[in-house]
């Protein structure tokens, strides 16, 4: 019952540290504990200065994304029992600046997310009196998986293209743009295309697929981006070939 497990946590305090360093903690081992429980134990019992984000503890809020032994994971979704007899190395998500310890600066993602206008865009709002916007189950199924995104940014930490070029709009924002483009109630596809079909949009993706592999919600951003490439290509040729298509 007195078994412990070692956590190596990346520490960085911009006020006092010149560069990040690892700090080792011995945490009680529990079969049912996840890495987030271990971090909470450190903060409550061992070292109150440790900073990390979390909220729901059930893979819904998307706050506790960290690198665990080099892989982007939700802290609440990674059980200690899968790392037993080893050291658990916890770092902030790759490809983002560190605010402090495990907390990353996500301003870049927030700007990209709003740039694709991830909400229903309609040309003319239907008056309330005309009733609901009906949608068939088939129309819902077209985009439902992409609507499961919780903006946890694991896909950005996994994406080698985002690591090489931070201008890349990136997996989650492009998947969410696709989610609204596929929605039968939405008419904003052309507006989103200004960002989505730009050089920094889907074309920066080289289809590595790491985003889809690490998504804790089963979203497939790689597929969304490939589908967008096909439809953006068809739109490009239509605009090129049809009279008055070039704007």
């Amino acid at each position: 019952m007195n078994e412990t497990i070692a956590l190596e946590v990346l520490r960085y305090n911009p006020d006092t540290d010149r560069e990040p360093h690892f700090q080792r903690y011995a945490v009680p081992y529990r079969d049912e504990w996840v890495v987030l429980d271990a971090l909470t134990h450190i903060k409550d019992q061992l070292d109150a200065t440790l900073c990390f984000r979390w909220s729901c503890h059930m893979a819904v809020c998307g706050s506790c994304g960290v690198m665990i032994n080099g892989e982007p994971k939700l802290g609440c979704h990674a059980f200690l029992r899968d790392y037993r007899n080893g050291v658990v190395r916890v770092e902030p998500l790759d490809h983002f600046p560190i605010e402090r310890d495990l907390v990353i600066v996500m301003d870049d993602f927030m700007a990209k997310l709003s740039s694709v206008e991830p909400y229903l865009l309609v040309d003319a709002a239907k008056p309330l009196g005309e009733g609901e916007h009906l949608q068939t189950p088939a129309e819902l199924n077209l985009f439902k998986q992409y609507a499961q995104c919780i903006n946890c940014l694991l896909c950005y930490a996994a994406c080698p293209q985002y690591g090489l070029n931070e201008g890349f709009v990136g997996p989650a924002a492009l998947a969410l743009a696709h989610r609204y483009n596929l929605d039968s109630r939405d008419t904003g596809k052309d507006r989103r295309a200004e960002v989505v079909a730009s050089n920094e949009g889907v074309w920066e993706c080289s289809f590595v697929g790491a985003c889809s592999a690490v998504c804790p919600k089963g979203v497939d951003p790689a597929a969304a981006i490939q589908q967008t490439k096909v439809s953006a290509s068809l739109d490009w040729f239509k605009a090129f070939l049809l009279p008055g298509g070039r704007k």
Binding site: E194, V195, A197, N199, W203, V230, S233, W236
Partner: peptide, 14 residues
Amino acid sequence: MAKSNKPLLWLPFA
């Protein structure tokens, strides 16, 4: 941002 001309290269690639 302007729309990219990448489809010219990408469609033959795909």
